[in-house]
Design a protein around this nucleic acid. Structure first.
Lengths: 114, 114
DNA sequence: CCGATACTTGAACGTTTCTTCAACTGTTCA
DNA sequence: TGAACAGTTGAAGAAACGTTCAAGTATCGG
């Protein structure tokens, strides 16, 4: 029954057409990936409290400065944080209003009883 | 100047105390990880439109049934989707109200001009 | 200028992740 | 019963990821 196959194929194509474009989906996944690593999630949480130097973040998270710096580079590339040089130090801050809200929303979910 | 070191350490500890617990952060990262893969993001978008059988999802995404099934297992484990057996087939649906809102929020961010 | 401090960067590594393939279970229907 | 269909599962391989280590740049104080 070739027709049934055809119907399914068409319906699949119709649904496919309703989804966001590949580019948007990819960007969306990239965004959520940022929150999907505990170290990055913690860094973002820290920066919600206040702007911090790299060394301070490392102290708070009890991680090496290098590891933190690598993750800050990733978050910078995703435009979620920005770093400003202040003399020898670099002060990091959130670079996006959505960060707080996305994080908040995730927390709401996580804090719920199943 | 040992005092300065002390002050920084204390301040780091203070900040650390303001963060969610390790467990919560870990859960939060796990949640966002689900949205952080394009295949899973697409599956969740599909299921926002309507409930679907595994084969339908595979058709829409133009992926193998096996690949889709593997990701559905992951999403099921995260309690974001649930599958209901209907005869030979299994119909999947979203298992969480937050999914739509989190996805929406991400979309808002992604669709913005920098 | 020199050493110390603050941070960045690149390579290396072990781990995790995602897809594919093949084998398997369960259901329908002829 | 057995062939066809829908989906699950485990193993395997490739790619992506996160941390560490060592080396590099930049800034400040003496």
């Amino acid at each position: 029954m070739a027709d049934i196959g055809k119907i399914n194929t068409d319906s699949a194509a119709a649904l496919r057409g309703m989804l966001p474009s590949e580019d948007v989906i990819y960007d969306l996944a990239e965004l959520f990936k940022m929150f999907g690593d505990p170290t990055r999630a913690k860094i973002l949480q820290c920066l919600q409290i206040r702007d911090l130097y790299v060394g301070e973040i490392a102290d708070v998270l009890e991680m090496s400065i290098s590891a933190v710096s690598h993750q800050l580079r990733v978050l910078r590339a995703a435009k979620l944080v920005k770093g400003t040089k202040e003399g020898k130090e670099v002060k990091y801050s959130l670079d996006d209003d959505h960060v707080t809200k996305i994080l908040e929303y995730g927390m709401t979910h996580v804090n719920e009883d199943d």
